[in-house]
């Protein structure tokens, strides 16, 4: 027989013996500290309240708002169509299903920016991407969108554009649908996706 077949047989055997010694990689998927630090320093992980308001008004289907405050506060007031995932249930399976879905941008917010920021770091450490923090949280939301301040005459023109947008947005958020504690909250319907998708198949 051909000498090449001896060589090929040997190569295949060596490769197969190699498989005995390798171990399947465990997918705990935790980000190394250096990468986490790098990502924390990126300013692009923050979004402003104006950006969020614009996305909400445009009814962006890829936007998912996550309220990280406790459920009691969420029931009093929250952003329209926001989902409540209290910060202490982030690591549970029900909490996890919202994060890391392809094609979805998750915006986290709390009362101020701090809690949401912590949650962001936790999620990033679990190697979940496409999460953003709303800078300033709901306090900032009230100050900018719900009660926008009139710009001074000396301010640049862009402030006036911003002000006009905020006024219009204010109308959108407070005029048509007022979300208050007295109103009965509608249940938010969100299409859930299993996190680790397994291929469907079969012959």
């Amino acid at each position: 027989m051909n000498r090449n077949y001896y060589i090929l047989t040997a190569i295949m055997l060596i490769l197969a013996i190699g498989t005995v010694f390798i171990h399947e990689r465990k997918y705990t998927s935790e980000l190394p500290a250096s990468e986490l630090l790098w990502d924390i320093l990126q300013p692009s992980r923050f979004v402003t309240t104006d950006q969020v308001a614009k996305r909400i008004i445009e009814k962006d289907p890829s936007l998912l708002l996550i309220d990280v405050r406790p459920a009691s506060e969420y029931n009093k007031f929250s952003l329209p169509n926001a989902v409540n995932v209290p910060f202490d249930s982030i690591e549970t399976a029900t909490g996890q299903q919202y994060f890391g879905n392809p094609g979805t941008k998750v915006v986290l917010f709390g009362d101020d920016g701090i809690l949401a920021n912590r949650v962001w770091i936790l999620l990033r450490r679990l190697d979940l991407k496409n999460n953003y923090v709303m800078r300033g949280g709901l306090n900032e939301w009230i100050e900018t969108i719900i009660q926008p301040k009139r710009p001074k005459q000396t301010d640049p023109e862009i402030s006036f554009e911003q002000y006009n947008f905020r006024r219009a947005a204010r109308l959108y958020f407070t005029g048509a649908k007022v979300v208050t504690g007295n109103m009965k909250k509608e249940k938010v319907v969100f299409k859930k996706r299993k996190r680790a998708a397994v291929a469907a198949g079969g012959c």
Partner: peptide, 13 residues
Amino acid sequence: LYMGYFGWVNLSQ
């Protein structure tokens, strides 16, 4: 098995 080892494919998926 090698692809799983090098992290190219998540074998559980």
